[in-house]
């Protein structure tokens, strides 16, 4: 037995509860300090395979703005953030763009799409 306790800040919602996670030999045991069940789920993922939502921008041609903001439609593995950024910065899409439009269908093999988060009209 080698139980350790780690403190985490839950990032699921802006309340930002302080979570105390008990781990045993790298395995998740239990968590306290979460105000809701989403916090417990976060703690477990965070300690085993952390995930994040990525937001950025992509280039747009022929639009009323040079960039369109984008986000991943769900979270992706945290260690892929920089690789995903390279993929995001490599794309350029033509205007018009509509909010919710899929920009990359499967971002870096995560199965998670990258979507536009605003409308851009053509000029």
């Amino acid at each position: 037995m080698s139980e350790t306790i780690r403190e985490l800040t839950c990032i699921v919602c802006p309340i930002g509860c302080t979570l105390k996670v008990t781990m045993d030999d790298g395995k998740f045991v239990s968590v306290t300090g979460n105000t809701c069940p989403r916090g417990a789920k976060y703690a477990e993922t965070e300690m085993t395979a952390p995930r994040r939502v990525l937001t950025s921008t992509v280039k747009v041609s022929g639009g009323h703005l040079p960039l369109c903001p984008v986000r991943t439609k769900g979270d992706i593995p945290k260690e892929l953030l920089f690789e995903a950024m390279r993929a995001v910065n490599a794309v350029s899409i033509p205007a018009p763009v509509s909010i919710g439009q899929v920009v990359i269908e499967d971002l870096c093999g995560t199965g998670v799409p990258l979507i536009a988060t605003r409308d851009i009209h053509s000029v």
Binding site: C13, P14, V53, T55, P69, R71, I99, T117, R118, D119
Partner: peptide
């Protein structure tokens, strides 16, 4: 909000993590 492209908006309101432009829209 149009320049706040990160997520984290609207959790209380819509129960979803929207980006700033989406919330404004």
């Amino acid at each position: 909000l149009l320049q706040c492209i990160h997520n984290g908006f609207g959790i209380h309101r819509f129960g979803e993590e929207l980006s700033g432009p989406e919330y404004a829209a």
